[in-house]
Design a protein around this nucleic acid. Structure first.
Length: 699
DNA sequence: TGAGAGATTAAACGT
DNA sequence: ACGTTTCCATCTCTCA
């Protein structure tokens, strides 16, 4: 099994022969462990099924009755499936979803569904979850979603609910009224309140009101307004005040990590900065959003660090990292909910306006000056209310959403940006909001039949890279794109300039700032770097020039990894599943510069990004519970132990200006020798460092 | 060939 | 300490 065998297999049969892409014993062991685990899990499910389906049955009956639904046995699988479908459709009708043509899918185990069904029959109900929405008894009048889609979304909720496993069943107390004393109107209001889709602008106050109450404080609005003021003035006044507070904060970090760098790939001065990155301050971690983070970014200001994160429920959190305040509970975080679905993109156009985009189809712009989230674009379905809107008719229904939005760098500086948008059904389109009041769709093409995860425009302004669930990265010349909506879906997709096959779903593909390299993250467990792919135009399949093995199996509860470039430098960062938890920094040749670890970095950082500054190096990471870490350069701890490979610093103390004690784990005796050699020469010459060292062998 | 079920993953939050 | 919840991700396998 050669390491170089990149998963370019295009057939599924080939995948079957070597499904794990393994190349070492340890992984084989892991697979064996995983399989053993799987057996245990399966056994548990069977036991649950046995206890759930019917108490009167004994083991032999269960074994014989392969297909049981609501206590009824079915002899064939098809009968069973048909019965289940009919059962769920009946329930939908009972709930008022009368449209017979409604299609839906069940996604969970039958056993759980049947237990829930039995629960319903016996007049008992499930334990109430914290934010269970109420049953909608009527369709909204004023909504960007037309009636059919509203029904389908509600339906989605119910189907999931029916099929939910691990349910706890409790006896219903009292009469079958509403839960916890709420009136039906109140429950309904709660259900609709979290949808922000009427096409209007949102003030800060409104966006805060849309938060779940438990995230808001009395001073939330005031705090948000104060933050906006700070951001507004950050470009002018921040530099002086911050440099003092910064030096205070970083005067005594608790650890430094030596790095393995190579001057041939990175400018020497820059490598030092990466080595100086530290992440041991508790203050540099904060809960910024309530739910899983889908996107992180930073405010572009050089003088003030504001981290921004968007989560799965449409929350956007702005975190002022260096806030000096002891009495507020939010720790410098202001939370808004400008969207109702996962945030797909957060991008600062300049220092006082940020684009927020979401799966809900809308794109907003946070106007810091005015303090509002303006809606600048949205997709609508066939609801004639929005006939006049630019996005009318784009939304194709239940399985349609806008997956990724990128602002067009060619429109930088104009008041209204242009947007590249990708969708869950494989479309890519470009919205030009500059020209008229309404704007226009420059092109709209279908480039895949699966979801497009990212789009990236090459600095040449013409080449667009798309990456999606079909496992192929395609490069297109957007000058050949046109508005293709009117034509039939069967029409052939535009021909790509070239393509790169990953085999499995590609989470992201981004061009480097210079345009030299294309960086790809895929479920085939690779970070691929392809050089000069944009120069091809003959439709060939290109191969990556560098392929880094990287565990991208994030599973269901973690946001997928998307390795991301620094906005101006040729380095990129990525989250990692490795333990201890870390964020990784690579250079443009795919060589790992740092795996940043630290006390405060204790979870998987699914999404990471760099601050745009090239002088103040900052890396921001967001995890799957809404926490954000900011990794920064500490000037007191510049240690450039180049050539000290295989060393890992485990402890360091700074007795201010006296001396430092540094303990390294060394992985071999050869390392110890080299360490001493090196330490006697370069280490003590470092101007910022007076050092005594103590070495322990690693075992 | 398509649809569906099951496995996988990590971390917060209850008891 | 342990069990529960997450469920607009994705892959693999099975069934008809």
């Amino acid at each position: 099994m050669a390491r170089t065998s990149r998963p370019t297999r295009s057939t599924r049969s080939a995948m079957k022969q070597n499904p794990n892409d393994d190349d070492c014993d340890e992984e084989e062991k892991q697979v064996a462990v995983a399989k053993a685990k799987a057996v245990v899990v399966k056994k548990t499910y069977n036991e649950e099924e046995a206890s759930d389906v019917d108490e009167s049955k004994d083991d032999t009956d269960i074994a014989a009755a392969a297909y049981v639904l609501d206590g009824v046995q079915y002899t064939t699988y098809m009968d069973f499936v048909a019965a289940k479908r009919k059962r769920n459709e009946d329930r939908m009708r009972a709930l008022g979803f009368m449209d017979a043509s409604t299609k839906f899918t069940t996604t969970k185990r039958n056993a759980a569904a049947s237990s829930s069904a039995n629960a319903t029959k016996r007049g008992i109900k499930r334990t109430k979850t914290t934010d269970t929405p109420a049953r909608p008894t009527e369709i909204r009048k004023s909504s960007r979603l037309s009636g059919s889609k509203t029904q389908l979304i509600s339906l989605d909720y119910y189907v999931n609910d029916w099929n939910r496993d691990s349910t706890t069943i409790v006896r219903e107390e009292g009469e079958g009224g509403d839960d916890s004393g709420k009136t039906e109107e109140e429950v309904m209001e709660k259900f609709f309140k979290d949808r922000v889709n009427d096409g209007s602008d949102l003030t800060l106050e409104q966006a805060i009101e849309l938060n779940d109450a438990k995230w808001n404080r009395d001073n939330s609005v005031a705090q948000a307004q104060a933050l906006m003021e700070e951001i507004k003035h950050s470009e002018n006044s921040g530099t002086k005040s911050r440099s003092t507070s910064q030096s205070k904060k970083t005067s005594s970090p608790t650890s430094v990590i030596s790095a393995v760098t190579d001057d041939s790939t990175i400018a020497a001065g820059f490598a030092w900065k990466i080595n100086g990155l530290s992440i041991d301050k508790e203050e540099w971690v904060a809960k910024v959003t309530p739910d899983r983070i889908y996107y992180v970014t930073t405010h572009p200001s050089e003088s003030k660090l504001v981290c921004c994160a968007g989560d799965k429920q449409g929350y956007v959190g702005l975190w002022d990292v260096d806030i000096v305040s002891t009495n507020d509970n939010n720790h410098g975080v202001s939370l808004f909910r400008p969207h109702s679905r996962p945030i797909s993109c957060l991008e600062w156009l300049n220092h006082d306006s940020m684009i927020t985009a979401s799966y809900d189809g809308s794109v907003r712009r946070l106007n810091v000056e005015k303090g509002i989230f303006e809606e600048i674009f949205a997709t609508y379905d066939s609801d004639s209310t929005y006939l006049e809107d630019l996005g009318y008719g784009l939304d194709q229904g239940y399985r349609y959403w806008t997956q990724y939005v990128m602002t067009d760098p060619r429109s930088a500086g104009t008041t209204n940006p242009c947007l590249f948008v990708s969708t869950s059904v494989g479309d890519v389109f470009h919205v030009d909001l500059r020209s008229s009041r309404k704007g226009m769709i420059t092109f709209h093409e279908s480039v895949s039949d699966k979801k497009i995860n990212t789009v990236s425009l090459h600095p040449n302004g013409n080449t667009l890279a798309t990456a999606g669930n079909d496992g192929v990265v395609r490069l297109f010349d957007i000058r050949r794109f046109g508005d293709n909506r009117a034509r039939s879906k069967s029409k052939a997709s535009p021909k790509p300039l070239c393509q790169q096959v990953a085999g499995l779903s590609v989470s992201s593909a981004f061009f480097s700032p210079s345009g030299k390299s294309l960086l790809t993250t895929s479920f085939a467990n690779r970070l691929d770097l392809t050089e000069d792919a944009h120069l091809k135009s003959d439709g060939t399949t290109v191969k990556p020039s560098t392929s880094i093995r990287h565990n991208n199996q994030t599973g269901r509860w973690l946001t997928t990894f998307q390795a991301k470039w620094h906005p101006t430098l040729e380095i990129f960062c990525s989250g990692s599943m490795d333990k201890p938890r870390c964020m990784e920094v690579f250079d443009s040749r795919g060589k790992m510069i740092r795996a940043i670890t630290g006390e405060s970095l204790s979870s998987v950082m699914s999404r990471t990004c760099f601050h745009p500054s090239s002088t103040n190096l900052v890396i921001v990471g967001g995890n799957s519970s809404g926490r954000v870490v900011a990794v920064r350069y500490c000037k007191h701890w510049i240690i450039d132990y180049r050539n000290l490979r295989n060393m890992e610093l485990i402890y360091a103390v700074d007795f201010v200006r006296l001396h430092n004690i540094i303990v390294f784990r060394l992985r071999s005796f050869d390392c110890v020798r080299r360490f001493h050699q090196f330490f006697r020469t370069d280490g003590l010459n470092h101007p910022d460092l007076k050092t005594t060292a103590c070495c322990t062998p690693y075992h």
